[in-house]
């Protein structure tokens, strides 16, 4: 066993290795994956002097505890939580030293869902298609953390920046998600689209890394049936037969057959990743892409 590693003492509800994800493989059925709260992941890395693409641990609600086998500089960001080293409280959102063999614990999230634990040198796992991210839908990447598992740490690349710490960005009482309508908004009645932008939705407890599910009113469809499978975007609001939108997060399927009523731009997805079940959700219309309504055009056949 290498010394540049850590032992998992308490894996928590779901702790996975995450980075910036896999880009460019959707046509093979491989989704983006990667940290759900990308700003928090990047920040954790910056605090310990890593490149932003280094792998961190993403926890879910209940945190995790690990024992580094070498001295490590760590930082915990994302959902605020009590952080302890050897049982003693240390700062959240700040680079802290963990002696070799000491227990590092990120406790249960006080607000939000997902905390990020960065180690100087990053978590080392075998990259798959250029990423170390765990994709819970496709099974690519390292397995979620388990009791007693040993994960390697990379070599620290340089001095840790001299930063006092960062504030938590605060908790919004409701999740406001701007939506660009389309591509399949025409599968819904005007009343259905009004329901989307005026209805009282809540984050469902069935949400996960694949999608944020909603509870609330059902969007009325203008037509029945399923679409032929088509490519699905990160941030797509897919509407299954029960009419309640599902917001596609990092581990979403690359193709799907239910209509997408609109798409939430990526910059709003970090907030979605931190919304606990029960949080009120409001969808607000963003002006449709500047190039106007969908057009049907005829292209000359070549050949």
């Amino acid at each position: 066993m290498t010394d540049s590693a850590f032992v998992v003492v308490r894996p928590g509800a779901l702790t996975t290795v995450q980075d910036l994800g896999r880009v460019g493989h959707a046509h093979l059925g491989v989704g983006r994956s990667g940290a759900l709260d990308q700003p928090a992941h990047r920040l954790a890395n910056r605090l310990v002097g890593n490149a932003e693409g280094a792998a961190t641990l993403e926890t879910t609600l209940t945190g995790c505890a690990v024992r580094p086998l070498r001295p490590a500089t760590v930082a915990v960001t994302g959902a605020p939580c009590p952080v302890t080293v050897g049982g003693r409280p240390v700062a959240w959102g700040s680079a802290v030293r963990v002696p070799s063999g000491a227990l590092l614990e990120a406790g249960a999230a006080a607000h939000g869902v997902r905390s990020y634990v960065a180690f100087d040198g990053g978590v080392e796992a075998e990259p798959v298609l250029g990423s170390r991210a765990t994709d819970v839908l496709s099974g690519l990447g390292p397995a979620p953390l388990a009791d007693g598992a040993v994960l390697r740490l990379g070599r620290p690349r340089g001095p840790v920046p001299d930063v006092d710490g960062v504030p938590h960005r605060g908790v919004a009482p409701e999740l406001v998600l701007p939506v660009v309508l389309g591509p399949r908004d025409d599968w819904f009645t005007p009343a259905g689209l009004r329901t989307l932008t005026t209805g009282d939705f809540r984050v469902s407890a069935a949400s996960n890394r694949i999608g944020l599910r909603t509870e609330g009113p059902s969007l009325e469809r203008a037509r029945d049936g399923e679409l032929a499978s088509e490519g699905m975007a990160l941030g797509a609001l897919q509407v299954p037969p029960d009419g309640r939108p599902v917001l596609f997060l990092a581990d979403h399927p690359t193709t799907g057959g239910y209509p997408v009523v609109g798409v939430v731009p990526e910059r709003y997805l970090a907030a979605a990743a931190q919304a606990v079940p029960g949080t009120p959700v409001r969808f607000t219309p963003l002006v449709r892409a500047s190039w106007g309504p969908p057009a049907r055009r005829t292209v000359p056949d070549g050949g």
Partner: peptide
């Protein structure tokens, strides 16, 4: 990403999707 499917092709990560949409009718 360029993602073909049953009757569609989805392109993601375009700086200006409207420009490509406007150009497409001129393609052979």
């Amino acid at each position: 990403e360029i993602v073909p499917a049953a009757r569609t092709v989805f392109l993601d990560g375009l700086a200006d999707p409207g420009r490509l949409a406007a150009e497409l009718p001129r393609w052979r």
